[in-house]
Design a protein around this nucleic acid. Structure first.
Lengths: 217, 217
DNA sequence: TAGATTGTTAATCGATTAACAATC
DNA sequence: TAGATTGTTAATCGATTAACAATC
């Protein structure tokens, strides 16, 4: 019931709140403080927080500890669940070594690659692709990170689906086809950077006809 | 004039269109085709495309080549501009080696790190931090990718700003403070994965009270 | 001409913001 | 009590969708 009142937009901001709340040292924190820190509207913050934490107190604010717990609960970070990396290239291995996942209730358990690579320097196993299905089913892994070359993406994705993975974070720049039951999120780094280039006004798109001077966004 | 009619939402979809258009083999492409491929509304696609490409023809669609050119023009991909990586750890070096940036008119020119690292295996120079300001000013670099440890983020960001960088793509999970003239985009991979976990319904947030069965988003 | 497709105007929807009531 | 802060209701804003006119 409660979850149905959380809009998509609100949901997207919750991790942002959590990130900031974790840095707060005081016992209580007000919506104004959060808003200022994150550059959001005060009312928006209050509305968002009210939807997940009923412990806000007039004149005092939100108990930091309680707020953090509620955020973590809604975001499902109470328990750590395993994920696998598919494609143990440079990016794949960089992600394996990244320990920031744990803060968000996730842990890379293993990686898979078509070529048997030297994993002696890694703390986690890099296994041949053929073992993925068995391994994932055995360890009940349902989240995968896809970091293979574009040409191998579809085949790898198929194998992931076949291994019982239902959520894929893809770093591949080509779209992949999966059944409706599987969620794919594309993380296109080049694209993010390109957007930044545009927002920062570095593209050749700035026309001289716009006599307003530089637009403020 | 034209650019002012592009909403933020539309702008965000343009790279998506470009990605797909580049895969199209036919001479012309209809909004219906694009919509189907990307899972968007037909009218939405038409409205978006109409705002950047005046060459749409009833009964025929959009000339693929022309559409691609217009998209690239608006997205500022005609010319390649340089970017630097700050923090030559695993992720930083993985990004250096990634050649997908070029497709979006960007090129990693060099990396900087506090520790002088072995860059003999790299095709691009990894230079000591002290040289960043001079190097960036000389090469007129205004875009930077931040991949340092959280503890070093603020200092590194300050140096980037000082080097004339006005757009930062940050992979650091802590917020950084920069002047208003600098744009920062946070790329929190762990967070993306966490969102996926939620969307895919793997968090412990699913309540038994929701008797609708699984929600379809 | 007829039909398919584009482009635009109006209606709907969702999210943000403003105003204000509630409360410790 | 007075004041600061929360929570909610109504108004505004922006984006999407629906209906339809324009056109090759």
């Amino acid at each position: 019931m409660r979850s149905s009142t959380l809009s998509k937009a609100t949901m997207g901001r919750l991790p942002l709140y959590l990130q900031f709340i974790r840095t707060v040292q005081t016992e209580n924190v007000s919506s104004a403080t959060v808003a200022r820190a994150l550059g959001l509207g005060e009312v928006q913050v209050r509305k968002d927080l009210a939807s997940i934490c009923p412990a806000g107190m007039p004149k005092i604010g939100y108990p930091t500890e309680r707020l953090r717990e509620d955020l973590e609960a809604v975001l499902g970070m109470k328990q750590t669940i395993p994920a696998v990396v598919v494609g143990a290239g440079k990016l794949g291995r960089a992600l394996m070594a990244y320990d920031g996942f744990r803060e968000y209730g996730l842990e890379i358990a293993a990686a898979f690659d078509t070529r048997v690579t030297d994993s002696s320097h890694e703390r986690k196993p890099i296994l041949p692709m053929e073992e993925m299905t068995g391994w994932c089913r055995e360890h009940e892994v349902h989240i995968g990170i896809l970091t293979v070359p574009a040409g191998a993406a579809q085949e790898a994705a198929d194998q992931m689906v076949n291994s019982g993975i239902t959520a894929i974070l893809s770093f591949v720049s080509v779209p992949i086809r999966v059944p409706d039951t599987v969620t794919v999120k594309h993380e296109n780094i080049a694209l993010s950077l390109a957007c930044l280039k545009i927002v920062a006004g570095m593209s050749n798109e700035t026309t001289e006809e716009d006599s307003h001077g530089s637009e403020d966004l």
